[in-house]
Design a protein around this nucleic acid. Structure first.
Lengths: 346, 346
DNA sequence: CCCCGCAGGTTATACGTAAAACTCATCAGC
DNA sequence: GCTGATGAGTTTTACGTATAACCTGCGGGG
């Protein structure tokens, strides 16, 4: 740990160990088997440790033509869901000695420049959320291994896809609400044109269509109305829910595509003098920290955000290694809380 | 845009433009004044555009010994505040053609490895939140330009410091509460040993001490009790607030160090049958999205998170350019909302 | 007329690493 | 005693860029 002077290079280590630079390179990357004697290996390792040697990654990247760096493209980190996706992806990356660089969209508007302009390095691969629509066309043309999160499994540009089991999430939600006696159901969507939310709408439709005629207890069949929020935020949810709750007949349950929207819906209900869940039930999606901060706490579908990020990185690593990339569908779980309850007689 | 084959290099551009590689380098970095004729400049630029040339950053970094990359060290991106700090820092970095790599602490526990082990590149500088205590000692020894966020201005290791005006934030909060008639004030701190929260405690003490004896309207002087939450979360706030609200005489106002804690405090109050703000007022810090999602909405001190990140990056850029680094204190603003109200006669 | 200065380039080299090609003993086998 | 293989390294080169040092005409001043 003689920490004086500039960074030591592999040549410095070589000098200290009395060997050539090539030997240092071989030893430190564990490619010495059958080429270097154990004694020499030890002395090289000791010298490296002594000098506090760290390989210069710029030089390594230049030599290898690869950077061991992945680009993660998400709409915005201020969305807790994507912050958690990043957490998971970064953890797995660190375990495999990969770097992660972020390309979040600047606050919903288009990108300042294209992702490869702003990327700090030649990239080895890309993991992108389908919500980051702004960047997708550029990514497809990048010729890089691409893993899509929350996107169609048949996307031809994607080497792999990672999805939460939205269909099951909506099934659980519908079963929960029908079981509570709800028949007039409203769907509050995010009004964002992405596979993510289109998929939720389809999943909800399918779940309702799969309901035995008249619902589990033989009542009238469920009906659905749908409204899109202007933006993915509490305020957006509030405005859209106010519209829904003003319509007649009033829905008794609101299925929201996101916890932010659900929180807004609860606020809207209260402003209209409606109690949650006595007068109207509200369910969300994601299980953000928000869900247990509001009162009543939100019944919501917990999506495994970290696992999605981690699975995305695993898939990318597989592609980079030339292995067959998995295309997992991750399980989700409805978490019943206070915002949903039995349907009051209307 | 002949996009076939491997990435073009500056030598390819040189060939296409009929000049030497050195000339290409000069032209594309705008260092040609007085050394290259305007006509040649144009032909080089045209060739670069035609080939879709992008400089190889690994090679550039190797040559220059600098990477134009900054490390941002924060506790966790899932904390909305730090996600916003990152947003601001990344925006400024992009404007100056700098890269940002993140080093978030893995979920509150110590780092997997030291920051320089995991950093993807030789770094030019570091911006660190004082809450990322786990990494600080390593950072100090890194010998890199260091900008501290939310930290003591006299930190000898820091080349610059960026702080929100906590003292003013607490002054505004105290003035607000005293104006509403509150005298028994409780402080709910985060129980995290960092300058951030120690500073808030000092700022609150100072604000109370500066109060004219007996408060603005001549009533009895304000009193303060203080409790630390076990963790920086809604649940942590709930537990700690339950303790505070169970004590006699019961405080009439809770000043919380963070909106998460404040949201938890509101929940605790309601569980004890207390109304917010009629029976107890609650204020927060940060103005997270959460603050307007809960009901009542939180009175809170809005911290300019993006600006903090941006100012940190500006300071780092200044240091890297050898300029005098600014050490700004950014203004904050109390946002009065529904969680604070007049003190009911006790 | 010669040398200078300058515009407008070019040549050569270094950055630190990885890896292919090469060296040089030693030793087994025939 | 010579061949060939093997172990244990070394030498050399390439990756793509930035920049210092070097050329080469050409017009003007002395």
């Amino acid at each position: 740990m003689t920490s004086a002077g500039p960074r030591p290079t592999s040549r410095d280590v070589a000098r200290a160990a009395g060997v050539s630079q090539a030997t240092v390179s071989l030893v430190l990357r564990d490619k010495w088997h059958g080429r270097v004697s154990p004694a020499t290996v030890e002395s090289v390792r000791a010298a490296a440790r002594e000098l506090g040697y760290r390989p210069n990654l710029a030089a390594r990247s230049l030599r290898l033509g690869r950077t061991r760096t992945a680009l993660l493209v998400v709409p915005a980190l201020t969305n807790e869901f994507f912050a958690r996706v990043h957490t998971g992806a970064a953890r797995v990356a660190a375990e495999h000695d990969l770097g992660v660089v972020l390309y979040p969209s600047p606050e919903g508007v288009g990108p300042a420049r294209d992702p490869f302009e702003s990327a700090r390095a030649t990239l080895d691969g890309v993991i992108a959320s389908s919500m980051a629509a702004h960047a997708l066309s550029a990514l497809r043309e990048g010729g890089l291994p691409l893993v899509m999160l929350d996107s169609s499994p048949d996307d031809p540009a994607a080497a792999a896809t990672v999805n939460p089991d939205l269909a099951d999430g909506m099934r659980q939600t519908v079963a929960h609400l029908l079981g509570l006696g709800h028949r007039r159901i409203a769907h509050l969507t995010a009004g964002i044109d992405s596979w993510t939310f289109a998929g939720r709408a389809r999943a909800l439709d399918a779940a309702l269509a799969a309901t035995p005629h008249g619902g589990p207890d033989g009542g009238p069949p469920p009906t659905l109305v749908r409204t899109a929020a202007a933006e993915l935020s509490v305020t957006g949810g509030l405005r859209a829910a106010a519209r829904l709750l003003g319509s007649r007949p009033r829905p008794t349950a609101l299925v929201c595509d996101d916890d932010l929207l659900a929180a807004g819906a609860c606020k809207a209900a209260r402003r209209l003098g409606l109690r949650v869940p006595e007068d109207v039930s509200v369910t969300g999606f994601d299980d953000l920290a928000l869900a247990t901060a509001v009162e009543p706490e939100l019944t919501t579908v917990r999506l495994p955000a970290e696992e999605i990020g981690a699975a995305g990185m695993h898939a990318l690593l597989a592609v980079l290694d030339g292995r067959q990339a998995p295309t997992p569908v991750l399980p989700v779980q409805l978490v019943p809380r206070g915002s949903s309850g039995p349907c009051a007689a209307s």
